[in-house]
């Protein structure tokens, strides 16, 4: 079986991002960039399926500027067999990414496509579901467990009240939640080996996809700051404040 894993380069999760002074966009000058945490989990899940003998080939794919090669190399070092980069300098929105991924799906016919549930920059949580729609596949979003069978996959999903399990016909789309697995670190020898693994480059035109950006960001601003509060000295004082000052308990 062949697995396609979609990965995104994003601001590292430890960075506290701020708007630029003119409010035109966020300030990403000199900030650390990483593989989106949910995409790390996606790669890890594919690698585990391969280690379990259920998967024979893992292809990592990313859409973005030339620099996304760094994250593709990371995915190769973690265990992907080859990589596809769809190069564009435009900021591609989720529907556009999904259309490009759908074109790769048409070329590669994977049995399973694994994506992160959410990119931690745009916080969209859309791309996997959109790819599933465009390709007509079933979707197992927010997965905390994946059992790959012969013609189907059982996905346990994190839902508001707990967990839900669905069965999907293959090929299918899975998006990862945090508890699906604990991603490994790439070892030095694997990082070296990854440099020699194949990486193909396409443009959106090569794939016959025209990108339209129908949602524009007009401005960005910091969120409302909270007033600095006070420290209380005792439980008694706390209860008194909550009752008589904030009036949130009776």
């Amino acid at each position: 079986m062949k697995v396609l894993v979609a990965i995104k380069r994003v601001v590292d999760y430890n960075v506290k991002v701020r708007p630029k002074a003119d409010g035109s966009d966020v300030d990403l000058n000199n900030v650390k960039m990483s593989l989106n945490p949910f995409c790390e989990i996606a790669v890890e899940e594919a690698v585990r399926l391969k280690e379990a003998g259920k998967v024979t080939e893992i292809i990592a794919v990313s859409v973005g500027a030339k620099v996304v090669q760094e994250q593709l190399r990371t995915a190769l070092a973690l265990g992907a067999d080859r990589a596809i980069m769809i190069e564009t300098d435009n900021n591609v929105q989720p529907l556009g990414v999904a259309k490009l991924l759908n074109a790769v799906v048409a070329k590669e016919s994977p049995d399973l496509v694994i994506l992160g549930k959410q990119s931690i920059d745009g916080d969209n949580n859309q791309t996997g579901q959109m790819l599933a729609a465009l390709s007509g596949m079933g979707q197992g979003t927010f997965a905390s467990n994946v059992e790959l069978g012969d013609g189907s996959v059982e996905v346990t999903r994190e839902v508001d009240g707990g967990l839900q399990t669905v069965s999907l016909k293959l090929p299918a789309v899975v998006t990862t939640d945090l508890r699906l697995n604990e991603p490994r670190y790439a070892s030095l020898p694997n990082i070296m080996k990854a440099k020699k693994k194949p990486l193909d480059i396409f443009t959106p035109e090569d794939l016959g996809v025209t990108l339209a950006a129908s949602v524009t960001t007009l401005s960005v601003e910091p969120p409302a700051e909270r007033q600095a509060g006070i420290k209380v000295a005792s439980v008694e004082e706390l209860v008194d404040k909550l009752r008589n000052e904030a009036k949130v308990i009776s």
């Binding site: 929105q93 989720p94 529907l95 999904a98 916080d123 969209n124 949580n125 859309q126 791309t127 996997g128 579901q129 959109m130 790819l131 599933a132 729609a133 465009l134 979707q139 979003t141 927010f142 994190e158 839902v159 508001d160 950006a213 129908s214 949602v215």
Partner: peptide, 20 residues
């Protein structure tokens, strides 16, 4: 959880971007 699951699928079938 439900809205996040099905809304992007609806948007893609309608060929529109979604606003989350």
């Amino acid at each position: 959880g439900n809205g996040k699951n099905f809304m992007p699928r609806i948007a893609a079938l309608l060929d529109v971007q979604m606003i989350s």
